[in-house]
Nucleic acid binder design. Sequence first.
DNA 1: TAGTCCCGCCATTTG
DNA 2: CAAATGGCGGGACTA
Length: 354
Amino acid sequence: MSSSCPTNPSSSTTRPHTYNRKQKSLGLLCTKLGVERRRIYDIVNVLESIGVLARKAKNQYTWKGYAAIPGALHELKEEALREKLEGSQGVNAKVWDDEDDDETLSNSGSQNDKSIPNSDAPKSHKNDNRREKSLALLTQNFVKLFICSNMELISLDDAAKLLLGDAHSSSIMRTKVRRLYDIANVLSSMNLIEKTHTADTRKPAFRWLGLNENQSSNVINSRKRAFGTDISNIDFKRNKVGVFVNGEFSQKPMKQKELEHVSGLGQVDKSNLKHCTKQSSRSYQFGPFAPASVHKVGPSENNSVKQVHDWDSLATVHRPHYQNEALKELFSHYMEAWKSWYSEVAEKKPLHIL
DNA sequence: TAGTCCCGCCATTTG
DNA sequence: CAAATGGCGGGACTA
């Protein structure tokens, strides 16, 4: 963080102004936000998993925007279907965890695999191992659970079990669940999922909201504008977290325990899920920046590029008072920070974190 | 107590 | 080698 960074600074910028790399250093950002650097990585990974961001290289991220989400989800869904086909029969869907990794995963999707320069072949084993345990993969698999199954509600425990396959020591489970919390917090912030609890058991669980189209899990085709477009008037209040949903900004009262009941159908049907999950590979392929062009789904009327508008309002100053709303706030702040970066950096220029 | 998730050590990966 | 990343899990905090 901080200081000197080798990478080329200005150059590519269209911005005559100073594209001050230093000002965009992750370290500085973290300081300003009062956030630990380590946290950022988690968030970035989740965002990248759903297409909002793309890592181009070390210290280089490209903001894709919310409009990229539909496309990413679509990809995930197809990928899941593909996996389902190939690996299904095996009653026990594999497990990612547990020592034995294997799977040739990593490359089912389209190009873009983590854009890892090194070819795949070599150190693949170890890499795969890492990859398999990555928050990014977990995020995608978690999302697949929702978009590929008919489960209405999924508790993190169930998700962990499903994603872990059979073998799960309580220890591994615990860790997995911790990660899922990390992920769920970010996804919740984006309103892609929401927390509730099963009707029967009062067990906490999450419901997929997706792009907020009607219930159907078919994320890819319904109206509603692209996720996150048109963000406007945001206003946070203590204990309230603003979230943008389809253009509108909604505030969820921190612990909204209201809607709970809704859940009716929820119930995890493990069996029916197993196959659908399996590792995947990241494969995003959205258009360049904001792409509203991404095979977007709905008629997202406005181009995400412009979703920039009110991001400023997202700013709001207040240090994240961790505890609970932690990631959520952090996320908001981060969005704001990025937004400013974005505007400064001009169109396609990659952002340099640090 | 179960559910959350803060916090940061430390192993890896990269440039 | 230093900096950037990120897996991982102990344990504090809450409801």
